[in-house]
Design a protein around this nucleic acid. Sequence first.
DNA 1: CGGACGCTTGATGCATTTCAATCATAGTGG
DNA 2: CCACTATGATTGAAATGCATCAAGCGTCCG
Lengths: 252, 252
Amino acid sequence: MPTKRSGDRLQAVGPTISAGPLWGPSKGKWAQLLSDDERARLAVIASVVRFKKGVQIYWGDHDADAVFIVISGVVKAFGTASDGTERIVAFLFADDLFGLSEAGKYSNSAKAVTSVTAYRLPVRALESKLPTDAAIEFQVICKLCNELREAQRHAFLLGQHQALGKAAMFLQLLEQHQVARGEDGTEVYLPMTRSDIAAYIAISPEAVSRSFRALEAAGLIRFRDKRHVRILDRPGFDKLIAKGVARSPLRR
Amino acid sequence: MPTKRSGDRLQAVGPTISAGPLWGPSKGKWAQLLSDDERARLAVIASVVRFKKGVQIYWGDHDADAVFIVISGVVKAFGTASDGTERIVAFLFADDLFGLSEAGKYSNSAKAVTSVTAYRLPVRALESKLPTDAAIEFQVICKLCNELREAQRHAFLLGQHQALGKAAMFLQLLEQHQVARGEDGTEVYLPMTRSDIAAYIAISPEAVSRSFRALEAAGLIRFRDKRHVRILDRPGFDKLIAKGVARSPLRR
DNA sequence: CGGACGCTTGATGCATTTCAATCATAGTGG
DNA sequence: CCACTATGATTGAAATGCATCAAGCGTCCG
């Protein structure tokens, strides 16, 4: 099944993953890691799947029979607390890898935040192909390092105690993510709901609302609509994050 | 320089890394991933380094010229908040990999929590050797997946709002870590200070003290000394974590 | 047009941070 | 070997920011 992305990437057939360089100097943007040839080799075992918004893609602790690579849309990986609450451990965007398993079982659950298109790579095929392809393996290592750093940044955000600081850092995170992929840097796009944001930064949805409003009232940001923010006062914004990172809400 | 671990592993020369299986069934314990042959190949470019307790191993944003593999001791990877506070994103134990870089710079800082022995692998050597060795690469992928899951578990812990629940989950995490490596399962060992624990689970050191004390008062755990805990009431302990995972401290 | 869902806003209680002081521990030098 | 000191650990008391509950509002989709 010949799969093509719409628009600017018609010639790119087969999975793509992207990440910042591990060792070389950064050119600001992330690079596409796989060559046409490597993509083609992966395309042999990949199929394209679609998920409607809100649909669950896999369940934690269930048999992990495939790994996924996002083509378009946004996915959330989450664990479920005992009271049924979702706790989001990662958002996955285009060219991101997800569906990690442990001992053959998915280690978390995943849902489509928006409509999602993705490549599906059966584990059985990977098991045999991957260990023989050093070139692709190396790119996977780069990608995993990237996701590991992302997870650590998330943990760092969660260390923050002020709701305001968490919200601001979240916007910063999303913005960096978007400029790294060469998207429009003037405005930050929020594909997920306030509740998803809350579940990611570990505060209540109400606190998310209030924090965004407070940032807007302070003249630091400006919402064009519920899903698009612009950072108006960059120095003030950065300073707030710096100050907010302290554990103490107010130093007397 | 022929390096040998003391005691039970005299024959193991060269770096070792370990992780749970990705796809196969788990045997409970983690397996050592590298074969003798692969270890030997890595040993060619590796050197052994020692760090005294408390010494900083590398600084975030500085040139990343080497990756490390812990032989013995405990390392903490941390980011520094603007007020100088350390926020710990990971503890690294024997056979763990650390020193990840982004664009040639370390993405966090690292200090020795205890006295540490480690292999040092220069990036320059890895750059050329790694992409040509599919077997080792595959094991590195396994290890990275493992550390990624660990980071996600950490994020999940940080989502918890009750200090008591965080403390309990932290003990659980350490315990799982220790049984996975085949160490004594009857007692949990805490190699790090209370302040380090606080910086990892993002509460104040005082709250760590109070939480441990509360768990002890409830008869769930028992400290032999400041560094050794035994979990007395397993069902009660697990139930507390399950209940504590709810956002609300008490459901009315 | 209706209904569900997401978002916002307002008030109250409470857990945790913070500050401060004491206690324990380990490491050091006399 | 023991006093001494720096550091970590503990305990107590007060202040504050967030979770929670509740209700109103906007919006998207059926």
